[in-house]
Design a protein around this nucleic acid. Structure first.
Lengths: 196, 196, 196, 196
DNA sequence: TATGAATGAGGTTTCATTCAT
DNA sequence: GATGAATGAAACCTCATTCAT
């Protein structure tokens, strides 16, 4: 059910390889502890050559951020579009968000959360603007459920609680464990919405 | 109901003032971006003088980490000891954990989560060892509820979900908003455990 | 009265456009602060393409230097040739030198003085050799006046004083001000030579 | 007659030695071509240590600039104060300016002129503000002579011409030559002012 | 204990130049 | 002739840490 597109822009071009390597290194060591030399070495070029592709180290972080936000927003759009049943829409959103956090965009998502403050305020604003669509899907679905009286709490608060549960999975979830991703999504769904 | 001890070690001594200042700066700027000079300036001494109190910058982070873990573990112990009703014990744990994250130890808790990886593996292990008691209280209570069939999911998984919800509050919770801390604790409790 | 030839070599060819752009940029930013990219961008090509026209960045500076020396030397020759009256010859030299410094070769002349030391010693020597003819005209005329006892000071010293006055005009002279170029030339002449 | 104070701030302190070395290197190689390592090596410290004394390389240039302006302004003040005869005052100004350019502050004066544009606009403004007093002495004296009808040209223009003659001496004057500094000053004076 | 100058390794970035296409 | 990605040396600057005073 989950789309398996490769992340926009993280392709086989020099730029794409740089972004993939950077995302991995940022995740492993943190943005501040990853040197431009590290990134260059990971793709087999000299550190100075990086600056033909990105104006600064921060631009690399920004690019990683934007690519992953755009890519995952598109996934969210698809999840909502795939059904008309609002509860199933929520299940889809949760599944996809879990997928983004423990699956193919895992590296970038961890970076996105942890190194967010390493972006300048300007860049944070730009990223938030794109992120708005992503959150829009959540509010649309949770708002609908709240209107049906099935949430028991404000939609925004519920979004925050779900977001906490999903993002925290990066710290513990083991795909080879007993509980699989869809199972976890179901648990979270069950804790979030009352049955009709 | 929440204990209002001051955090152990973050007292009026030079060392304590250093720790408070460091926790705040680490939270604001991140560990890597906070310089020893920043910390020294915040308490009005020279950067070289810091090394009479701590052997290295990392020792400061470690000390902040350990102080807050010990302090909050003691709070957890009290929360469990304050009642025999297992559901009330869980409510207490949730309340206290929220309190640690948005209340008096907020600075240090954010640092604890975000800058965890800046500690050497050795120090991480040492901190985890102390943290074990903290998590022990949770497993005792959640394990009890699971034994009563009131959890609907593995106790460990539930702990992770709750931990996600509580820790994420640092990103959004506003004490001056409509929902207060106890109200939020109740919402989380309700989502976690089935009534008898 | 002043020749209005365009500077040799600074024509409409790619090489000529490069030289003009370089002279302007060197004047504005200094040789060291002007990048090969700046120059390339100013004429709408890529930086790598510059090296089809010049072997190195320094060769560009050298070419600017040589073009302007040759061009202005020719002007000097004409100024001396245009009259037999020795005082009028000096007036012509002063006028032309002022013209080179505040007029059409202004950019290059400022560069010539200020960024002289950016040329290798070898190139400095080569440029000085060509410059010798230029200074020759001055010495011929001032030497003649000194022989007539109308200088009151050694011809070489007088040449240095005049050169100081003329070259310094790049720092202050405003063509739209009250004093025009010929007027200034007359003032300098008057301060240099005693009447018969 | 010429004061032989050592330049303010260019004393035996680390900072003073740094300034002297920097002035010499800037003069020899130009500001842009002088590296922080060069300066550090010249006084026998590591390059990083420079930044305990100056916040940036540009601050060193600025300090050199300001010290020499202040020092020479004080000399000018003394030159004017030393006599009431206006023509002798002018002789003093010329002598002192020549002294600043070929004598003890030679290094810094050449730098001041040639690398002026390497200062940020902000710093240029700050330096000009201090320089105003220096130029004030010239305008006071030349204005006085103009009022007596002994200048034959606007005082401001005359100041520019003299400034050209004096500053250019850095390119040619040889103290061991036939003409000494006072002799040169007399020549310039003679060319500038008509006798009563 | 406190100071503050010094260290020295290492960070990001710049840039003239090269070269395969 | 032109391109533009890559090089690699070197630039300025940062910063945890040391140590004589």
């Amino acid at each position: 059910m989950i789309a398996t597109l490769s992340v926009y822009g993280m392709d086989d071009t020099p730029r794409g390889k740089l972004l993939s390597a950077a995302a991995r290194l940022f995740r492993e060591q943190g943005y501040d502890r990853t040197t431009v030399r590290d990134i260059a070495a990971a793709v087999g070029i000299q550190s100075g050559s990086i600056f033909h592709h990105f104006a600064s180290k921060e631009e690399i972080l920004f690019a990683v951020t934007m690519e992953v936000i755009r890519f995952n927003t598109e996934r969210m759009r698809q999840a909502v579009a795939s059904t008309d049943d609002i509860q199933e829409q929520l299940r889809g959103l949760i599944r996809v968000e879990l997928q983004t956090i423990v699956g193919d965009t895992r590296e970038a998502m961890i970076v996105l959360v942890r190194d967010w403050r390493c972006l300048s305020e300007e860049k944070q604003k730009a990223a938030l603007a794109v992120r708005a669509e992503y959150e829009g899907y959540w509010m649309q679905v949770l708002g609908g459920l709240q209107a049906q009286g099935r949430l028991g709490v404000d939609a925004m608060v519920m979004r925050r609680l779900i977001n906490g549960m999903t993002s925290w999975t990066s710290n513990w979830f083991d795909e080879s464990g007993q509980l699989d991703l869809d199972g976890l999504a179901d648990v979270i769904l069950q804790r979030s919405v009352d049955p009709l």
